[in-house]
Design a protein around this nucleic acid. Structure first.
Length: 502
RNA sequence: CGGGGUGUGGCGCAGUAGGUAGCGCGCGGCGUUUGGGACGCUGAGGUCGGAGGUUCGAGUCCUCUCACCCCGACCA
């Protein structure tokens, strides 16, 4: 036996022992979700085939399984957006430099992360084009053309698009140089109406997260320093990720006031014949949300897909020994599959080069909510074995009960996952009154810390510099009475959420 | 942009003293297997990130360069 072989044998033995000790079954080569969450994330993304590395720095390939998840989320969100009266359209990828620079705060905010097109073929452009980091600067001037009268308002448009932001430290789904999102852009005749729309769309995002993704969120207002470049105010939903309990800004909605209306001259005559500038909103939710699904629900065995958006809701794994058995098992599988109809997304794993055990592990890694095992013994008893991904619970179910039982079970899993995610959020949130406690919690990755804040950027900056925690939002849900600023101790009216963020 | 690290078959790695590459996984074929990541036999696959240099001879030594990863400042 050669040295290499011995080493390898030892490493295999070590892995097996480790697996037994930590009770992780046969899940191999996946970093521990508690000990090394960042590596776990990277590995899950790759092994579950959600995304792959790309030859271009900072960009990732979204593989079919990851894209299917995104498409399901997209569909749910698109329906909700349209239900509020918004229509989809498409605006260009490129924005002339001068247009991007019209709104001062906007340019300043995005300048460091804009990619520029300077040449067309071998001809240098008169004026460079920005690759859109967001589309206000190209959409608003068009709106200006479309609006003359208050009767032309509101304009309610959404687009599904890719955007580019030159990020330094990319992470699959969470922060990539190019990413996919939807961006809604509306124009209104009054600030009140714009405000109403801004809040309405934040509610849409919250509903999407809670209802479809089983992700509880803390909705609120961003502080001045955290708001969108050029906005009057920014609302956000903040979700708590598993592992390190950091926050992830999961969707934002901006009331742009008339800042963009003025600089892009979206001017109209109101009912009194007075000239006015339009009020705008913009709101976006990106593929980043896929990262949230991974990090909120994943466990030591890999992903756990929320049933409502799971690309595959149930996978049937046939089991056989002999060719004869195979025949009858595959026939039974077909019958079961047909009995389930089109209401649930079922996949049958007929691969004969993988053992059932291998398939179990793979589908668990991929987070399929329900596994159905069907073998000779089951055919005998006219049943199947049903295994829940969320609890690992395994039970025999009569084949005839399956069509009725499965949709219910999927809902139950969805609810259970929401309950678990809510428990995680609550268990890792604390109201703090001492600065030292805030510091402790930040360094211990203890989650969200609720504390009073006087509103000064000095206090905000101090916390950020000393603890790395930032004000994630000023929650809508505020305590009845005021208190004292966690930093300076002066009287404070508002409570904020401090947390480290992705 | 500052600090640290790594580049060797698809992936993970080894390569001791310079002598023109090796292991595991994976992959193809055949056979036995299949209720929690099966096994045997057999086969294909790399010029060692790139450029230059030292040397009879470089994966190994030297110089330059590129890329990627990790840690810090900015971000949906």
């Amino acid at each position: 036996m050669q040295a290499g072989a011995v080493d390898n044998l030892e490493s295999v033995i070590t892995r097996r022992c480790h697996a037994m000790v930590t009770d992780r079954g046969y899940v191999e080569e996946l970093a521990d979700v508690e000990d090394d969450f960042d590596r776990w994330y990277v590995e899950v993304v790759r092994k579950a085939e959600l995304a792959d590395d790309s030859p271009v720095r900072g960009t990732r390939i979204i593989r079919p399984y990851g894209y299917a998840l995104w498409e399901n989320i997209q569909r749910q969100l698109d329906d909700r957006i349209k239900a509020t009266g918004v229509e989809n359209a498409y605006f260009p990828l490129f924005i002339p430099k001068s247009m991007l620079e019209r709104e001062a705060n906007h340019v300043e905010g995005f300048a460091p992360e804009v990619a520029w097109v300077t040449h067309g073929g071998d001809k240098k452009l008169e004026e460079p084009w920005a690759v859109r980091p967001t589309s206000e600067a190209i959409i608003c001037p068009i709106y200006a053309r479309w609006v003359q009268s208050y009767r032309d308002l509101p304009i309610l448009i959404n687009q599904w698009a890719n955007v580019v932001r030159w990020e330094e430290r990319p992470r699959a789904f969470l922060r990539t140089v190019e990413f996919l999102w939807q961006e809604g852009h509306t124009a209104h005749a009054s600030l009140d109406e714009a405000e109403e729309r801004t809040r309405q769309m934040l509610d849409v995002y919250e509903d999407l997260c809670v209802t479809e993704l089983a992700i509880p969120v803390v909705p609120g207002l961003k502080s001045e320093s955290e708001k969108f470049a050029g906005a009057l105010r920014t609302y956000t939903i903040e979700a708590m990720m598993g592992g390190k309990h950091w926050a992830l800004q999961s969707g934002t909605s901006h009331n742009l006031g008339d800042h963009f209306g003025r600089v892009f001259e979206i001017e109209f005559l109101d009912a009194n014949g007075e000239r006015q500038f339009a009020f705008n909103t913009s709101w976006g939710l990106s593929t980043r949300i896929v990262g949230a699904v991974i990090m909120v629900h994943g466990d030591e065995r890999g992903l756990r897909m929320p049933p409502r958006v799971a690309p595959t809701q149930a996978v049937i794994v046939p089991i056989w020994r002999k060719a004869k058995e195979r025949e009858s098992v595959e026939a039974a599988v077909k019958t079961v599959q047909q009995s389930l109809g089109k209401d649930i997304r079922v996949k049958v794993d007929l691969r004969d080069d993988k053992t059932p055990g291998w398939k179990f592990n793979e589908w668990e890694l991929k987070g399929v909510p329900i596994r159905i095992e069907l073998g000779p013994r089951d055919i005998q008893n006219e049943q199947v074995m049903v295994v829940r991904r969320d609890t690992g619970e395994k039970q025999p179910v009569p084949m005839s009960d399956l069509p009725e039982m499965l949709p219910k079970l999927l809902e139950e899993i969805q609810e259970n996952m929401m309950a678990q995610a809510t428990a995680m959020l609550n268990d890792n949130s604390e109201r703090v009154t001492e600065y030292e406690r805030l510091r402790e919690r930040a360094s211990a990755n203890a989650g969200f810390s609720y504390a009073f804040w006087c509103g000064s950027s000095e206090c905000e900056d101090k916390v950020k510099a000393e603890t790395h925690a930032t004000i994630r939002c000023i929650p809508f849900d505020q305590p009845a009475e005021g208190g004292h600023c966690i930093v300076c101790g002066s009287a404070a009216e508002i409570e904020v959420v401090f947390a480290r963020a992705y």
